[in-house]
Computed example of a mutant assay.
Amino acid sequence: MRQERAVRTRQAIVEAAGAVFAEQGYGSARITEVYERAGVTKGAFYFHFDSKEQLAQEVLDGQVARQTAFLALRPREVKLQELVDSALLVAHRLTFDGLLQGSVRLSVDQGSELDRRPPYRSWIEFQVDVLREADARGELLPGVDVAVAGELLVGAFSGVQLLSEVMTGRADVRERIAELYRLILPSLAVPEVFAKLDISPDLGARLMAGEPG
């Protein structure tokens, strides 16, 4: 029981931190606001985290694991669909998930001492793994360099979601990401595979609701 309570307390702190980092960025965020928003004491906070930097790094590093764990439960017959699923699931969650929003903001925060590379590396590895298997299944055009393609997709997604945040407060992030994949994937997928892909802006919401893709 005590261990379960400790896990819940830690998770409450991390989720509160995600929201605070999303709103204020790393530099302006205060530990006091995090533990007050989490509804825990200062002592409880420092039992779990030594510093703001340690807390922020945990928020940042968990970004990809939380998404890929969800997607692992939904393997697809067309492997490239899993690539689209990952993008549109994240795009959908960016409209409401404070923890993910905080993690993404930290990943582009150049004014902190955090190591911002882990989530990018993890996302690239995920993309490359999916692309490599898709290639083995004959879903990719000849000559596609999966390492280059993986980095391109991560970089393009990062830029488009940032543009959406600046221009509309992410109100259109799902539509922008869907359009990005509709434009990029014909240069990667064989035509008959591309024709089977669901790249609808509402795909992420349907995935979260457990509806068939």
Rank of each mutant, 00 (worst) to 15 (best):
E151R: 13
A6K: 12
A209K: 13
T168P: 01
L153M: 11
I124L: 08
Y46S: 07
S187Y: 12
R66F: 09
D109E: 06
L141D: 09
S200A: 15
W123S: 10
G155D: 11
S122I: 04
V144W: 05
D115M: 11
R132C: 08
R37S: 10
S187L: 12
Q11V: 09
A136D: 15
F47L: 15
D202F: 06
A87Y: 04
E77I: 04
G102T: 14
S158K: 05
S28M: 12
F21M: 01
D135A: 15
E139Y: 02
V190A: 11
S187W: 08
D129Y: 10
R37D: 04
L197N: 02
V78Q: 12
A189Q: 07
E165T: 12
P119L: 02
G25M: 07
E33M: 10
Y26E: 02
E53A: 14
F157V: 07
E125S: 11
F126E: 08
G18V: 01
A12V: 01
D97A: 04
P191S: 07
R8C: 02
R10V: 01
Y120K: 09
F126S: 12
G213A: 15
A72C: 08
L55S: 02
L89W: 00
Q54F: 03
H48D: 01
A149H: 08
L188Q: 00
L73W: 06
V160W: 08
V34L: 10
L153N: 02
T9K: 04
D50M: 07
L89K: 00
V64M: 09
E211W: 12
E192C: 03
A171T: 03
Q54D: 13
G143E: 12
L131E: 06
S103A: 11
D85L: 05
Q101I: 03
H92L: 05
G102F: 13
S158L: 09
L207E: 03
V148W: 13
V14F: 01
V146Y: 06
E58C: 01
I13R: 00
E211C: 08
L89H: 00
Q54N: 08
V40N: 08
E165F: 07
V34R: 04
V34M: 08
E211V: 13
F47W: 14
R182P: 02
Y120L: 12
A171P: 08
A12P: 00
G138D: 14
F96Y: 13
I184G: 05
A19V: 12
E36P: 05
A17V: 00
E23W: 00
F47E: 15
V148F: 14
F47I: 12
L140S: 03
D145K: 13
V108K: 01
T95A: 05
R93T: 03
Q161P: 07
E113V: 14
Q101T: 07
A134L: 07
S103V: 00
R182F: 04
S86T: 13
K196S: 13
V20H: 03
A147Q: 15
A149N: 05
V130R: 07
T9L: 10
V193D: 09
A91I: 10
S200R: 13
G210N: 11
R121F: 13
V190P: 00
